[in-house]
Design a protein around this nucleic acid. Structure first.
Lengths: 185, 185
DNA sequence: GTCTATATTTGGATAGAC
DNA sequence: GTCTATCCAAATATAGAC
């Protein structure tokens, strides 16, 4: 059946996500997660009886849902370049203009459960497919569309790493600006 | 004074690096590091009295040294594009064709000591400067050279993330192939 | 310089009161 | 559903024998 996710649940997922994204799976301790959410550790276990792996899984599932919204303009905008630009604007929010890392990066290091890594791989493939479809709709061949989608994901993930290392979010904003041309030209 | 690093030291640093790169700073436990090096934990403390932070610092210092070699062709090759190609070949070795992560990514998550993050930032700046100088030597304006160097670092780091998430090293090889054009055209 | 043994703290997880 | 209290394992670190 599945009841609708309450606002509380969404808020909790967002706060858990902030810790996992900043610290990675191994680096996110139950104490960190508990503090961020504002509940005692035991209370977190009430909501996630399977512990930290379940919290991480919930975060990734929540991201999958969010990406449904973020990627939607890619498919629905008549002007593909404008759809890409809208995706970029929505990504700027999710990634806090480049200051917040991507789960695909920080939750896939060695130490994360295989199921989490698998979930991340699926999220990446969904994202690639959506960008590839958009590029194809803009006139690219199937092969070229996949090439462009991959290049876009590489630049986005790379920009987030470089922005973190240099503590300079302009790298990310620059890359977001390149996306319409990269995918739809 | 400083004696020359022994072969043993280099081997130990390489084995420590493999763990830190795969698991991140927080994810690399003393047990993991001990197992990888082939010494008991107490023996690691004999070599690194300041513990895990000192091990991570040694790894980054070792990477700085390695990067001296990797980046050298950028400055010394008369043909800049060929120098970039040679850098790319050397990077393929360090990153195991894209299957081994970059310290800049995995050792800069929240949880790593600030000194480690600072060391990573310096390494990134050194790398950027070397690529920027090469691009300038190939005829780019100062500003364009910096833009190209930044784009190169973004693509390299992004390719390593995407290669890990998709478990597909071809993304990284593709990016390495693009570097000569990106930096020297 | 490496080891075994141990101390101490933190992390993940559970029991049971409210 | 949240809390305090607690358990157990793992993580960091040290002491001291060899």
């Amino acid at each position: 059946m599945g009841r609708t996710a309450s606002v509380d649940d969404e808020l909790i997922h967002a706060r858990l996500a902030a810790v996992f994204r900043a610290s990675g799976y191994a680096g996110a301790s139950l104490s960190d997660l508990s503090r961020a959410v504002g509940l005692q550790r035991a209370s977190l276990y009430h909501r996630f009886p399977d512990g930290k792996p379940a919290m991480a899984a919930a975060v990734l599932t929540s991201m999958e849902t969010q990406f449904g919204d973020i990627l939607q303009p890619l498919a629905s905008e008549p002007d593909v370049a404008e759809g890409v630009a809208e995706m970029a604007r929505r990504m700027a929010l999710v990634y806090k203009d480049g200051l917040m890392a991507c789960v695909l990066d920080t939750m896939t290091l060695s130490g994360a459960p295989q199921g989490i890594r698998d979930q991340a791989t699926r999220l990446a493939r969904t994202w690639l497919q959506a960008m590839s479809d958009a590029a194809a709709r803009a006139g690219a061949s199937e092969q070229d569309a996949q090439r462009r989608a991959r290049a876009a994901l590489v630049r986005i993930e790379g920009a987030l790493v470089v922005a973190r290392v240099l503590d300079d979010s302009s790298v990310f904003e620059q890359v977001l600006g390149e996306l319409p041309d990269l995918l739809a030209s």
